[in-house]
């Protein structure tokens, strides 16, 4: 593991209009590390990871990805985004393209890869997420779980250094969740650096190196999963966990 963190966030603040969405966030993620972010809805978890690839622009503080500062409105943000894969809650597959085209678009357009080579790469990732037989179908013909696995494969096709997951299982039917989590755990075993916003506590226990608990736009507690789930230090985290366990 290298000494410099892959993601380094210091003093990050973000407002939506007058509303303060993030306040003084400091977070470093080392190469190969897996961080799970949890917290009540509206606590700024999604906003935080969306700032990392600048889907949201921050007003204060600094974000560094692989040593390079990420600033709002910067030139060459595409270059950084190509190193940062993202998986969305609502999959966001390109609706007018087949599964295979969804995967090859990035490598062909961004990396100038030959179409044949890109197809080969895409098929290898589709096999990895165990969905290769659906390559010719359109997103709407797939189930939610299948779509999300394709979305993961699409992000991987850019061969990123970091993967961001924004509540990847929240929009899925219960029987679909396991397949997606399995794929993510496989990815973790392969050594991918991951920042995952999720409420899947089982996943967090099995995979996370650290759990970050957020509330009202601030990081309230950071701890290894056993410590966090076993004995949260803060009252807010304890309350959140008890609500999560109540059902």
């Amino acid at each position: 593991m290298s000494e410099t963190p892959l993601v380094e966030i210091t003093g990050l603040c973000k407002w939506f209009g007058e509303f303060s969405a993030l306040w003084d966030i400091n977070l470093s993620v080392m190469r190969g590390e897996k961080v799970v972010i949890c917290g009540p809805s509206g606590s700024g978890k999604s906003t935080l990871i969306r700032c990392i690839n600048q889907l949201e622009e921050h007003q204060k503080g600094s974000i560094r990805v692989d040593g390079q500062e990420v600033r709002p409105g910067m030139k060459g943000i595409e270059k950084i985004r190509r190193e940062v894969g993202m998986v969305f809650q609502s999959f966001n597959l390109f609706a007018h393209m087949s599964v295979l085209d969804n995967l090859t678009l990035g490598p062909v357009r961004n990396r100038g890869m030959a179409p044949a080579e890109a197809r080969e790469l895409a098929m290898s990732y589709l096999e990895k997420v165990r969905i290769a037989e659906q390559a010719a179908k359109y997103p709407a013909q797939l189930s939610g779980g299948q779509q999300q696995r394709v979305a993961i494969a699409r992000a991987l096709c850019m061969q990123p250094k970091l993967m961001l997951f924004d509540e990847p299982t929240s929009a899925l039917d219960p029987e679909m969740i396991a397949g997606v989590l399995e794929v993510m755990e496989g990815l973790a075993r392969d050594g991918m650096t991951m920042i995952v916003v999720t409420h899947e506590m089982g996943f967090a226990r099995r995979v996370a190196d650290r759990v970050v608990f957020m509330d009202k736009g601030e990081i309230v507690e950071t701890a290894p999963p056993e410590a966090f789930f076993g004995a949260p230090r803060t009252a807010r985290a304890a309350e959140f966990l008890s609500q999560l366990l109540a059902h």
């Binding site: 889907l55 940062v84 609502s90 961004n110 979305a151």
Partner: peptide, 22 residues
């Protein structure tokens, strides 16, 4: 939908490619 724009940006498409392809 906004998600289509975001997904295109997230894989690092250039603004031209985002418009033309997505």
């Amino acid at each position: 939908p906004k998600g289509q724009w975001e997904a295109g940006r997230a894989i690092g498409l250039s603004p031209t490619s985002l418009l033309r392809d997505i």
